[in-house]
């Protein structure tokens, strides 16, 4: 199988998943035992609702409705949010929310990896010794504390008791870098602790396995220093699982971000999901979930592409498979 057809097949698989996810959400909406048009326009006239039904495809069957939504979605029309006073474009909301959430996630990933990698390397190097045990046990305990609990404790102590950081809101970088980070620190820490533990654990396990390999002894027999062996010879082949899990954790992060964004009033995409649900904005919900799934699938693809760079063997193995 050639490389191109491998990638085509992979993309096709992911597209199918995407279609099924969005179709599933769309079916779910049709299961709501209430007239959707009434929910969206609670105070409108019946004519207005009829126009809306026709516009959104509520008057068609589930498949017709889905196809209409899909047609709009791929053209960039994500639907509207309906207020008593009028409507707003979902895409306008996402334009504001996406960058915030993405920054939140990128910072979370950077912080998590920056802490987890040295900790993982250290605890693999000292496996079974004191440093390893302390690291493992501390992280295990911290990671079992849900992120909203950490967020609330941070708010209580850092935000309220000592008043070091603002507890609510978001500031774009244009307001100043420090202002921006001041609002990001607590949400990022809340989301990071669990990831740090997961990453450290994965890396430790893989590095311990790699440390037993002959090529490590071989590297030692060349007279290389321990740190050079650890980083150059052990870390790289061990980082594959870490990378995969980092990309795949993006999806979970969006979920975690819903609560964290609502605690800190960051108003990112997680909050948009929540707002759509709380406000019964089902069209907005459908499109927002589709965007999230799109990102998730995208990160899956990123894993596939980047694994070839980290471990050259997978490049050919896949093509030969």
């Amino acid at each position: 199988m050639s490389r191109i057809s491998f990638w085509l097949q992979r993309v096709a698989q992911l597209l199918i998943v995407l279609l099924l996810v969005t179709f599933g959400v769309s079916l779910l909406l049709r299961l709501i035992p209430v007239d959707l048009a009434t929910i969206l326009l609670p105070v409108g006239t019946e004519e207005e609702r009829d126009i809306l039904r026709n516009e959104l495809g509520f008057d068609k069957g589930p498949i017709g409705y889905y196809l209409q939504w899909l047609g709009n979605f791929v053209q960039g029309d994500f639907g509207k949010i309906y207020f008593s006073g009028g409507t707003e474009e979902v895409s306008d909301h996402l334009k504001v929310a996406m960058p915030r959430s993405l920054l939140l996630m990128v910072y979370t990933q950077i912080l998590s990896l920056a802490i987890a990698i040295p900790l993982g390397v250290l605890s693999a190097y000292r496996a079974g010794r004191r440093a390893d045990k302390i690291i493992s046990n501390t992280l295990f305990t911290l990671s079992s504390i849900p992120n909203f609990a950490i967020a609330l404790l941070l708010v209580i102590f850092v935000g309220v008791k000592f008043a070091w950081l603002p507890t609510l809101g978001y500031a774009p970088i244009s307001d100043g870098v420090w202002e921006h980070f001041k609002h990001m620190i607590m949400p990022v820490i809340s989301l990071s602790l669990g990831l740090i533990a997961t990453y450290t654990r994965l890396l430790r396990a893989d590095m311990i396995a790699a440390l037993r390999e002959d090529y490590v002894t071989m590297a030692a027999s060349k007279g290389l220093s321990d740190s050079r062996i650890l980083w150059r010879h052990v870390f790289r082949p061990s980082s594959m699982t870490l990378l995969t899990s980092a990309a795949l954790s993006m999806g979970g992060l969006i979920g975690g971000a819903i609560v964290i964004e609502s605690i800190f009033a960051t108003y990112g995409i997680g909050f948009e999901v929540f707002a759509a649900i709380a406000g019964r904005q089902y069209v907005a919900l459908q499109s927002t979930v589709a965007v999230i799934a799109l990102f998730y699938v995208f990160f899956n693809l990123v894993v596939d592409v980047s694994s070839g760079f980290v471990d050259p063997r997978t490049r050919d193995r896949r093509v030969n498979a």
Binding site: E213, D214, K222, D311
Partner: peptide
């Protein structure tokens, strides 16, 4: 190591680092 002692390992499949 290197200029004093050196070793050829038993299994050339496993003694070379696969990703370098």
């Amino acid at each position: 190591f290197g200029s004093g002692m050196a070793m050829i390992f038993q299994d050339p499949m496993t003694a070379l680092n696969p990703v370098r």
